[in-house]
Design a protein around this nucleic acid. Structure first.
Length: 422
DNA sequence: ATAGGGTTAG
């Protein structure tokens, strides 16, 4: 059966194909497509003209284009028709399999492809490490790094950035420090991205001072570097520091993006800075042209709710252009519990039941609200529902690393054998 | 004739 790979070029393209030593512009233009439809149109042209089977670059560039557009289905179909894929093609496939919307077993497929590869380069390891961190499989990413070191393959910058992100998510400070030392020792260039990843790792692992030290020494800070630093201080509740950094960022000529405002607004929320929060919220749209997204509304509802301004929170929710999500309702419910607002709390709870009918934590919170307000009947009704529907409830917990070991702490749990010391 | 990678509300 003749496939498009074996078909000879049509007469109209034959001239172009045989006389030119340069890559056809249609193949080059695959890289600048920003729309899937454009890629598909070019794909069709390549099939019809026979270029796909004729030019060795055509299939791999098409594969690359589908991968960057997260079109794994098309990427696989192209991949399967490449006669003898090289490392670059395999690496592109590993990236594609671990990117975009995950369907079951795609990371495993990437792993299998990786294991089956006869020749792997640093980019192959990097692709899978990044794939793991992108899918929240941080432990697997760090384990793969160990294998990589054993195989004497030097990690590239992309791998190091992903590994630092994994360390930050897990809070494994000593592994992060080890990578930092490794970077210094091997004289890897400290780029903006790498330094930003280090700052984020330190901040998320409880060493904000280390992160801030690196930040201050940076030669070039982009909007992400500022975002990492401001978010870090926001989590620590240092609102004034966030405001100061925001001004410094503007003075540095960097325009804030939506992420910066999420960080600033969450800083306001954690520190109870209602007035500043309101100012930044309106400044965001009027001075910087950024339309508030659901995350920004989430921060504002939380800010107003914590401050007990529940009527304002309600008004804001009703003014939202899109449907509030469970985070917004959960935030409102939590505020209603602390401020004993049964009316709005019930409203939030009703919406939560629609959006997350099986989340035991939401029901538990509502139960506590009714119990606090003396509504014993409502409270028992909810407790029964949790029991009957066999809903799972989680408790808040935190991880802390001491001398290389990670300990988990659960709210109300003091049975840890060295809880006091830690 | 070659990419990838860092920030985000409870």
């Amino acid at each position: 059966m003749a496939s498009f790979l074996t078909r000879s070029p049509l007469p109209m393209d034959r001239n172009l194909l045989t006389t030119s030593t340069r890559t056809p512009t249609t193949i080059i233009s695959l890289r600048t497509c920003h729309d899937i439809q454009e890629v598909k149109q070019l794909h069709a042209r390549f099939v019809v003209s026979g270029l796909l089977g004729y030019h060795p670059l055509c299939a791999r560039r098409l594969l690359e284009a589908y991968v960057t557009k997260s079109q794994i289905y098309y990427a696989v179909s192209i991949f399967e028709r490449i006669p003898s894929p090289d490392v670059f093609v395999y690496n592109t496939m590993i990236r594609g399999l671990t990117m975009g919307y995950l369907t079951e077993g795609r990371v495993d497929k990437a792993r299998k492809m990786f294991d089956d590869m006869a020749a792997k380069d640093a980019a192959s390891w990097s692709a899978l490490i990044t794939g793991y961190t992108k899918n929240g499989m941080h432990t697997e990413a760090l384990a793969l790094f160990q294998d990589m070191m054993v195989s004497h393959i030097l990690p590239n910058e992309a791998a190091l950035v992903s590994l630092l992100s994994a360390c930050g998510q897990l809070g494994t400070l000593h592994q992060g420090r080890w990578i930092h030392a490794y970077i210094d020792k091997t004289r890897v260039l400290m780029s903006t991205k790498l330094t930003t990843a280090l700052i984020d790792m330190y901040a998320k692992s409880g060493s904000i001072e280390c992160g801030y030290g690196l930040f201050q020494k940076m030669a070039w800070r982009d909007v992400v570097s500022w975002g990492v630093m401001i978010s870090a201080f926001a989590i620590y509740g240092h609102a004034s520091k966030c405001f100061q950094l925001f001004d410094e960022m503007l003075a540095d000529g960097i325009r804030p993006n939506k992420v910066i405002f999420v960080a600033i607004l969450s800083a306001c929320s954690h520190a109870g800075r209602v007035e500043e929060g309101r100012q930044y919220f309106s400044q965001m749209e009027h001075d910087f042209g950024i339309k508030p997204s659901i995350e920004h509304y989430g921060c504002m509802v939380d800010l107003l709710g914590r401050a007990g301004l529940l009527a304002d929170a309600e008004e804001l929710i009703l003014s939202m252009p899109e449907q509030p999500n469970s985070i917004i309702w959960g935030s409102l419910l939590s505020a209603c519990r602390t401020h004993n607002d049964l009316k709005r709390g019930t409203w939030a709870f009703e919406n939560l039941m629609e959006l997350e009918p099986t989340s035991g934590d939401r029901y538990k919170l509502a139960g506590l609200m009714f119990a606090n307000a003396g509504e014993k009947e409502e409270a028992t009704k909810i407790r029964k529902m949790i029991h009957e529907k066999e809903m799972e409830t989680t408790c808040g917990s935190s991880f802390i690393e001491v001398e290389g070991a990670v300990h988990e702490f659960t709210v109300g749990y003091t049975a840890h054998n060295k809880a006091r010391d830690i």
